[in-house]
Design a protein around this nucleic acid. Structure first.
Lengths: 224, 224
DNA sequence: TATTCTATTCAGGTAATTTTCAGAAAACTT
DNA sequence: AAGTTTTCTGAAAATTACCTGAATAGAATA
């Protein structure tokens, strides 16, 4: 579990870092608001500990800007004693919890753990075409409740087709989207993969209707 | 939303009650610990505000006894100033949050709302995947009731996988979350750790099904 | 200080996947 | 129907990903 501490008092920051590392967290530290914001935007933390009072950019602002950027990492705001109104403000800015300084380390730990325990808003990851199910999170494909085992490329290709179900996709489009831009891929490679997919998701289910259709001279289409 | 206040200072109790009622909560009040405990056990509250210092039975004890009775109503503990250690004790007893007296009513409101919003997170720190148990507090891992001894990194990696059980995790993600940002880790290092984990949680339990699965070309997945 | 334990990298082997090839089959064209 | 184009297909070749045992260096412990 990776945490970010944004705190300008080096002594506090380092002592928290040390304590959390002993609890087996991977900890990054930023000593000013801007660095903190940059790190929080670029790295993928499991939670962020944010001091309210910071050089360059204060904690509440960081919080707001992160939320604006659709970064929903849980945030624990550290508030200096006696700034009650600020706490409310912090919640409005999108902080998930706050802690009043000074605090015992145990306290911090309990709160971090609570934040981590919180179930993250799950992005719906299951897509369907007729009786075919594709789950991008678990990388699982099912047809008719049967689990189907696909290789990485096969999965990518199928995912692309599922995302564009009903539309005709040319081989060039598939090469563009499923392979990286400088890959030198022959159209026949796509044909070969289409066959591999058919072997797995169409031919074993011959009593059901085909999902992959060839549109001669144009490309392929998934589903009706 | 129905709340219970257990507080012996009538003045405070009544003023909180009044404030909360204005916020459209239904509020019951108990002025001593025993009455409070009885009410909390018999009625079904959405949250309980508990003073730490009470006649007959103190707040922490009430908390403990309620949890023992498998009553998991969110509890906000009111703690007198300067008793930091007590706060920790409160959490251990099963309180979900605490507030230091004196406080502004706004603060109380924010915290109550937070508690109600929270989908009853149990204070439990044990996570499970099939017959694997992982306790983040004590850093203990068990499979099939057998205690398994893991190194720090092994534990961190496993914890991350457990928290995302069923989902495929790429090596990059693991590097992102288990190491801090200045660490320069090769994907092969992750592979090596996966092997170490398998040596400890999978291979010795060959009669049971594997927990760590390789998804070739993508990453690894725990369970499912 | 010696010794054990841990984290990380290296390098070789293996197996699975990806890609190409070349011929067959199918679908249009005239 | 013959010719042309496009797709299909099985197998071979090329490539990549993963596994693994050993080596190293660093940290922790005795």
């Amino acid at each position: 579990m990776k945490l970010l501490i944004v705190e300008d008092e080096h002594k506090i920051a380092n002592s928290i870092k040390k304590g959390l590392e002993q609890e087996l967290f991977a900890v990054d530290v930023a000593y000013d608001g801007e660095t903190g914001f940059d790190l929080a935007s670029s790295e993928d933390y499991d939670a962020i500990i944010l001091d309210r009072l910071l050089p360059i950019m204060d904690g509440v602002t960081i919080c707001q800007k992160l939320r604006e950027k659709q970064i929903h990492t849980p945030i624990l705001l550290l508030t200096a004693k006696g700034q009650i109104e600020d706490k409310v403000e912090g919640f409005n800015a999108g902080a998930d919890d706050y802690l009043t300084k000074p605090f015992a380390f145990e306290e911090l730990l309990v709160r971090i753990r609570a934040l981590l325990r919180r179930p993250k808003e799950s992005i719906q990851s299951i897509m369907r075409v007729e009786d075919l199910e594709l789950d991008t999170t678990s990388h699982t494909v099912k047809r008719d409740k049967q689990v189907i085992d696909l290789s990485a490329k096969e999965f990518s290709l199928l995912e692309y087709l599922v995302r564009h179900k009903g539309a005709v996709i040319t081989k060039d489009q598939m090469i563009q989207h499923v392979w990286n831009y400088e890959a030198n891929i022959l159209p026949n490679t796509v044909e070969a993969f289409i066959k591999l997919l058919r072997n797995k998701i169409d031919y074993p289910f011959s009593r059901k209707k085909q999902l992959i259709h060839t549109i001669r001279g144009v490309g392929y289409k998934l589903g009706e």
